[in-house]
Design a protein around this nucleic acid. Structure first.
Lengths: 222, 222
DNA sequence: GTCAAATTAGACAGCATTGTCTAAATCGTC
DNA sequence: GACGATTTAGACAATGCTGTCTAATTTGAC
């Protein structure tokens, strides 16, 4: 919310049609997310974007086009962030618990407690039935790909770390489930968790994960 | 969807204002869930309930009253089912994995893949911000209470079973997270999982849970 | 069968919204 | 400063929705 306001204030003061497009997309995301597709009015979006209604109709032919554009825009952004974070998955066992917990914090912060991520999650549940093809795509490109990618990363890690995993896909899904366990309740509209809570929650999740999947560490023999 | 249709068909053929109230509540639930609060029209609800629009206004003064009644109705039902299932939590360690998995299946089937449960989850995310007090209530009476109740049940079980749990609340949250791990993606609008999938998923979740929290079973000494 | 209560269909006002149109104002660029 | 493109404010028709009203019909109980 505040993020969008600030951003659109920026855009409002900037020049050029590009800035207006951005401003509209952000305001639209905000309003669609608050009110749902039918509840959102173009006028409201226009006001929040600091733009006239007609401008919106100039850029996006109709309400549905705008909606699609918003979804597409945010999906791209979320996916980009997601895969940049997957790239930081630990590769060795030097500080396994530490590294996995830090990774979990990054994942939660940027892909679960994120404004964009909340938006997608919410819109999936509200308008998912209305636009099956769009969300089919999201399902395959987003969570679907995440699970498989994470499974591969665990497989790689298992070479370097004392992990006893026989089903990497399952382990990946369970890892994700565990690190989200404490965030579920706050859900989509609660207050965002603090940094400390994120750290603590991730640490506990990883600890449980490693108790289930970690082989007893090889004791230093010498 | 089909469930509601059948139910309202029943109600339509029955007599009495009670049957009409039920029929209206069910149709309203269906339409609110499909369309959201603003997207749902009273006319649509009336048609689906097999009832005239005016009758709806007779029973529930306005749209918002009807909405509240629907939520309240479903919340009661969901909570009832939920606590009846919590009552079936295993008490001893005779068949721990088996019993926990069966419990997980019951929980998933009746509290996660349920029509009512989906409804509440969806409405929480769409209208949660609009009616904070209502959903504050849900949050405390629903998931909040579930977590604590389940924590107590694990504490009781730990007396009889070889479980190494130091934070029962955490374990309860993680148990719930794990048994939902495979259902997350299908999410709110995908096809319902088959019985076999439910069994399999629950079994794997419980296995991981017990690998994390189960002490190595005491070998029969004699 | 009678009578009161509940239900129905339909008309209706009031309002919000979408999307179009136009004429004026503003912007970016040269 | 001039000119073409963009933006703006506002009016506008069409539509759909809520909630009220009424008059006719059906239902349930006696």
């Amino acid at each position: 919310m505040k993020k969008f306001d600030l951003a659109s204030a920026d855009a409002r003061s900037q020049k050029g049609q590009f800035a207006k497009r951005v401003s509209i997309l952000e305001a639209a995301a905000d309003v669609f997310c608050r009110e749902g597709f039918s509840g959102a009015s173009i006028d409201e979006i226009a006001v929040e974007a600091g733009v006239s209604r007609q401008t919106i109709y100039n850029h996006y032919r109709e309400k549905e086009t705008l909606f699609m554009a918003v979804i597409q825009d945010i999906m791209d952004r979320v996916n980009g962030v997601l895969f940049s974070i997957l790239a930081t998955f630990p590769e060795n066992a030097d500080n396994l618990e530490e590294d996995l917990a830090a990774f979990a914090v990054r994942l939660n912060k940027n892909c679960n407690c994120n404004q964009d991520a909340k938006f997608i999650q919410k819109l999936i549940s509200t308008e998912g039935n209305r636009y099956p093809h769009l969300f089919q795509f999201w399902r395959e490109q987003g969570p679907g790909k995440t699970d498989r990618a994470l499974a591969a990363l665990f497989a790689r890690l298992a070479h370097a770390a004392p992990l006893d995993i026989d089903d990497f896909d399952l382990a990946a899904r369970q890892f994700i489930a565990l690190i989200k366990a404490d965030l579920q309740m706050g859900g989509l509209f609660g207050e965002a968790p603090s940094e400390a809570e994120l750290q603590d929650s991730a640490r506990k999740a990883v600890r449980t994960f490693l108790r289930a999947y970690g082989r007893p560490a090889v004791q230093t023999l010498a």
